[in-house]
């Protein structure tokens, strides 16, 4: 997993720093953006919940379009995920402020918050999908955005040889439960960035 993280960070760095002058010749400018916000939804046990989401993305800006990669950290109460994603955004306005649309898609690594009754043998993340719309403001090279959207995250856990706590009979090997969980949340986030 460290390999993917390093690759993501390197891409981000490369997108930010690589050949700014040559890019400028092609009207391509690097950008970096840090977002933080809340994930709102309905949790099966606790009801309505708010959890946090944070991400860092970077890439190239071409006119009104921005293309890049990012890394994030999301919390879903018992699950924590680290998405690595590609992102594409489009400003609907040529002015210094206006609406924008953004779409991110990637894979998130996931970890479960284990407890006495929920201790998977194996856990995996899954695909992450995140369309957003928002409003941006730019002053100089600084850009601030407020966006709202939808986030889909898939996670997976496997439990081997579960046994009944009320019984002393150990199960035979081979018993297995897998849970594929599709998490849907509304995202509201605030981003601060360069360009």
């Amino acid at each position: 997993m460290r390999k993917y993280v390093n690759t993501g960070l390197l891409l981000l760095l490369a997108a930010t720093l690589h050949g700014q002058d040559s890019l400028r010749q092609h009207r391509m400018l690097p950008f970096v953006s840090l977002s933080s916000g809340v994930l709102a939804g309905e949790h099966p046990q606790t009801g309505k919940i708010l959890t946090s989401t944070t991400s860092l993305s970077g890439g190239l800006k071409v006119k009104q379009m921005r293309v890049g990669v990012g890394i994030g950290f999301d919390s879903y109460l018992e699950w924590q995920t680290m998405p690595l994603y590609g992102t594409i955004a489009f400003n609907l306005s040529k002015n210094t402020h206006g609406l924008f649309m953004q779409f991110s898609y990637g894979y998130a690594f996931a970890w479960m918050q284990e407890n006495e009754f929920n201790r998977p043998s194996k856990e995996e993340g899954g695909r992450m999908l995140n369309p957003m719309v928002g409003y941006f403001l730019t002053t100089g090279s600084c850009r601030v955005g407020l966006s709202v959207g939808y986030k889909f995250q898939r996670v997976w856990a496997r439990y081997d040889n579960q046994y009944n706590l009320a019984s002393s009979f150990w199960p035979r090997h081979g018993n297995q439960t897998t849970v594929t969980q599709s998490i849907e949340r509304v995202v509201v986030s605030l981003s601060v960035g360069w360009r």
Binding site: G41, V179, T180, S182, R185, V186
Partner: peptide, 8 residues
Amino acid sequence: CSDTCTVS
């Protein structure tokens, strides 16, 4: 928005 599970 909520969660859905497929349990096997």
